[in-house]
Simulated assay, not measured.
Amino acid sequence: MQYFNDVKALIADLRKEPGKDIYCDGDSETIKEMLKYSLIDKMIISIIPHLLESGIRLFRDGLPEQNIKLVNSQTFASGLVQLSYEKANLKADRV
């Protein structure tokens, strides 16, 4: 699904629907909007072992501080590393 309107309203609507998780695979602008409103409960960051001369930062300036904790890390033979994080206060947010 592609969505071009208010991401905060979209997530609020999706959370009312039956189901467990909402999966979002996005670029830095999508991530920025979701972090801006503290809409991300869990995230997986993949580190690909390839150095670039330049590129777009994943986390942009102007975002509120996020209190997260590492819950898992996985290394692959290719050198790719996946880091899984959750909000540090996830259980308190969902009560």
Rank of each mutant, 00 (worst) to 15 (best):
M1Y: 12
Y3D: 08
Y3F: 15
N5L: 12
N5G: 13
D6E: 11
D6H: 08
V7P: 01
V7Q: 11
K8R: 15
K8V: 08
L10F: 09
A12Q: 14
A12S: 09
D13S: 13
R15L: 13
R15T: 00
K16I: 03
K16P: 03
K16C: 12
E17N: 11
E17T: 14
E17C: 11
P18V: 08
G19W: 01
G19L: 02
G19A: 01
K20D: 15
I22P: 07
Y23T: 09
Y23G: 06
Y23R: 06
C24H: 04
D25Y: 13
D25E: 14
G26E: 07
G26V: 05
G26D: 03
G26N: 03
D27E: 14
D27V: 11
S28Y: 08
K32F: 15
K32I: 00
E33I: 00
E33W: 06
E33F: 07
M34F: 14
M34I: 03
L35G: 00
L35E: 07
Y37A: 02
S38E: 12
D41N: 10
D41K: 05
D41M: 04
K42G: 11
K42S: 08
M43C: 10
M43P: 02
I44E: 13
I44P: 02
I45A: 01
S46H: 01
S46T: 10
I47W: 04
I47K: 11
I47F: 09
I48F: 10
I48W: 07
P49K: 05
L51F: 05
E53Q: 10
I56M: 05
R57E: 07
R57V: 01
D61W: 07
D61G: 03
G62K: 00
G62N: 08
L63Y: 01
L63N: 01
E65S: 12
Q66E: 13
Q66Y: 05
N67A: 15
N67Y: 06
I68T: 08
K69G: 01
L70T: 00
L70M: 04
N72Y: 11
N72R: 11
N72H: 08
N72D: 15
N72S: 10
S73M: 14
Q74D: 06
Q74R: 12
Q74T: 11
Q74K: 15
A77R: 11
A77L: 12
G79T: 04
V81K: 06
Q82S: 12
L83I: 09
L83D: 02
L83G: 00
L83F: 08
S84K: 08
Y85N: 03
Y85I: 03
Y85V: 02
E86D: 07
E86G: 01
E86C: 09
K87N: 10
K87T: 06
K87V: 03
A88S: 14
A88Y: 01
N89T: 12
L90C: 04
K91Y: 05
K91W: 05
D93G: 04
D93A: 06
R94P: 00
V95F: 09
V95R: 13
V95L: 15
